[in-house]
């Protein structure tokens, strides 16, 4: 039973085995542990060092405001791919008429691709 479970999963080029994964996990954990052990010993909890640094601005009293809202996350990505996203947004009008139009359009495309050629 165990042999069957632990069999290597072969995908043609690569492979996957839970044992290898566990082994890799162990090694990564060890490396992290060693790196962490080499950390700066002068670090002290509860002193000036642990204070939040917000580019010199004072910290908000209300902690809630510190939370970056979902619509602000990945702002740069959304800004730089605006042309794609705006096109896609225009596609999603949310009206049944347009859904039917897309459906008809795709039937026409299928007909041209499969029927004419």
């Amino acid at each position: 039973m165990f042999e069957q479970l632990l069999k290597t999963f072969d995908t043609g080029n690569g492979y996957w085995n839970p044992l290898v994964w566990g082994f890799a996990f162990l090694i990564i954990f060890l490396i992290i542990y060693i790196l962490r052990g080499r950390g700066n010993p002068s670090y002290k909890r509860g002193t000036e060092q642990t204070k939040v640094f917000l580019s010199g601005n004072p910290e908000y009293e209300n902690k809630e405001l510190l939370h970056v809202k979902a619509s602000n996350l990945y702002w740069g990505w959304v800004e730089s791919t605006k042309w794609v996203i705006n096109t896609l947004k225009k596609m999603h009008t949310g009206r049944a008429n347009d859904y039917i139009l897309w459906f008809t359009f795709m039937i026409a495309i299928f007909m041209l691709l499969l029927g004419v050629i």
């Binding site: 008809t104 039937i107 007909m111 041209l112």
Partner: peptide, 16 residues
């Protein structure tokens, strides 16, 4: 553009 696409695809579908 939408009307154009609609007309075109409807024509093709109805011809078929």
């Amino acid at each position: 553009g939408r009307m154009l696409v609609a007309a075109g695809s409807l024509t093709i579908v109805s011809i078929f």
